[in-house]
Amino acid sequence: MNIENLRDKTNFDSPLGVGGSLCITITKAMLTSEGTTNLEVCTEINDNELLCLFGHSGAGKTTLLRILAGLTKPDKGLIVFNGMVWFDSEKKINIPPQQRNVGYMFQDYALFPNMTVEHNIRFAQKTKDKNEVDQLIKLFDLEALKNQHPAKLSGGQKQRVALARALAAKPNVLLLDEPLSALDFDMRLALQHEIRKAHELLNTITLMVTHDLQEVFHLATSVVILKNGNVINQGKPVDVFSQDKTPYLYLK
């Protein structure tokens, strides 16, 4: 989809009819270990998709997530979510992260050390609702930990709290930056289930950065493969990886 088509779409009086679709056309210069490369992404993500961003380090996966969250500003381009312009370099529109309502889960989980598990989740709520906090705590099996501070939690427990907190804000889009990379193998398997649960609960787009093919096949409804800032392939995991008999080539 080209950028002009996207602009035309946003001029409609009613919002885009396709629910919570996310249209991205951006360029951003990135500094990598091999010098400067341009992150150039042009894609459209449909509602309810659980999309994995796959590629080697420095390919631009995290930068793309940060751009979507409004934490990093692209050099040029257009981002439209559900008919609402989040970023438009030509019209100088850049909606701040506070108003995009995305759930962003950092690699280090970024739980607030000064708050208990329960307070971390409550902090995220737009309108305070004790019942909902209790439900999330139950759902992610955190009842025994709700009065603990993050410093006392294991990696897997932190991940569950971070997911619960992200859901408490009822985000439009869920962005997960390598949510499982810091965990051991058994824990990964267990927590993949939690991620799927979170995605199904939100009923919206989830974008997840990963290095792990097994995660892609287990979770993703579609996958985008990034290499040196460019999308080199995208589609259903089975289709994308069967086109090439040795998918690990993408990593080199």
């Binding site: 992260p97 506070q98 950092f106 280090d108 970024a110 995220a124 907190r165 804000a169």
Partner: peptide, 15 residues
């Protein structure tokens, strides 16, 4: 203080 704490708070809608 890790930058991710501030940024998480912003994405949660806090000024």
């Amino acid at each position: 203080i890790p930058k991710s704490l501030r940024e998480t708070s912003y994405t949660l809608g806090k000024s």
